[in-house]
Design a protein around this nucleic acid. Sequence first.
DNA 1: CTTAGATATTTTATGTTTGAAATAATTCAA
DNA 2: TTGAATTATTTCAAACATAAAATATCTAAG
Lengths: 160, 160
Amino acid sequence: MTASQEMLKANNATDDKSRVRLWLRLLRASRAIESELRERLRTTYNVTLPRFDVMAALYREPEGMLMSQLSKYLMVSNGNVTGLIDRLTTDGLVQRTLRDGDRRTSVVLLTKAGRENFEQMAASHREWINELLSHFSPEEAETLAETLKVFASDWEGEAR
Amino acid sequence: MTASQEMLKANNATDDKSRVRLWLRLLRASRAIESELRERLRTTYNVTLPRFDVMAALYREPEGMLMSQLSKYLMVSNGNVTGLIDRLTTDGLVQRTLRDGDRRTSVVLLTKAGRENFEQMAASHREWINELLSHFSPEEAETLAETLKVFASDWEGEAR
DNA sequence: CTTAGATATTTTATGTTTGAAATAATTCAA
DNA sequence: TTGAATTATTTCAAACATAAAATATCTAAG
């Protein structure tokens, strides 16, 4: 084995380790934050995190979203969205409307109750995130967010 | 309102936004990677991600782990671990051993089959991560991992 | 020794999640 | 127009996940 081959091997081994370490850190960080947010949403508002996520997505789209758009945006399966929307509908927070000229689709949107309910939760949610990420200065946060942006561009649309 | 109060308000608003944006990016990045790894583990090795995670944890500890250690390390509930270990045991990949002098606890460890099985998967897993995180140079990865370390120190042990 | 409290795990009920199959509606080429 | 692909959603079974309650065991004060 030549010296340059040795170099290459060593470099690859380093890559291997640092990227794996990065992934494990990323995963642990998001799991830790997610757990904490889940817990606070449950105890404070008696709402599950998936339901909050759905409502957050719908809140951004006053015109409503298709089931498939929700599925893609939240990166969860179609069947999952169906169940979540069923339960949110039962609770009067969300409604399916049959407009369009396409009878396969139904546009889902927040009800008035859903919007009001979400606005309350969203305020707390923002505060909690600022608390949980207080280790990062705004500048660091900005930089880090920019760094992580590559995923959005790369993977967007590849959802299940 | 004084000028410094204006400044303060403006700063807080910025914090708010940048940290929330960071959280959303972090979440999307880890979900995207997690989805892709889940998919590849399923199609290539017919294994679920949670099962892989359990096996990875156990592989690092040849002496085995307590259920509660697994739960804490993986940041999932106790009951969840019970089910996962039950299924892995049924498949002969994991075993509970009743050593200790404490009959409340059982030490869980990989069987020979489990270790062999995991070693295969782990090699692919490492490659996939390097592929999926190839946007980051080893140096960037190292830096980013270091940045995300704060969570480990802050939250470790606060599991559910 | 007894037993109150602590610890480790499992059980239970409910909800989430997936992937595959089924259903329903649309589109478009022949 | 027909009907074969495509698209959108739902249904289904199995696994995953949580929180709370139950069970079992251990520990240590009295």
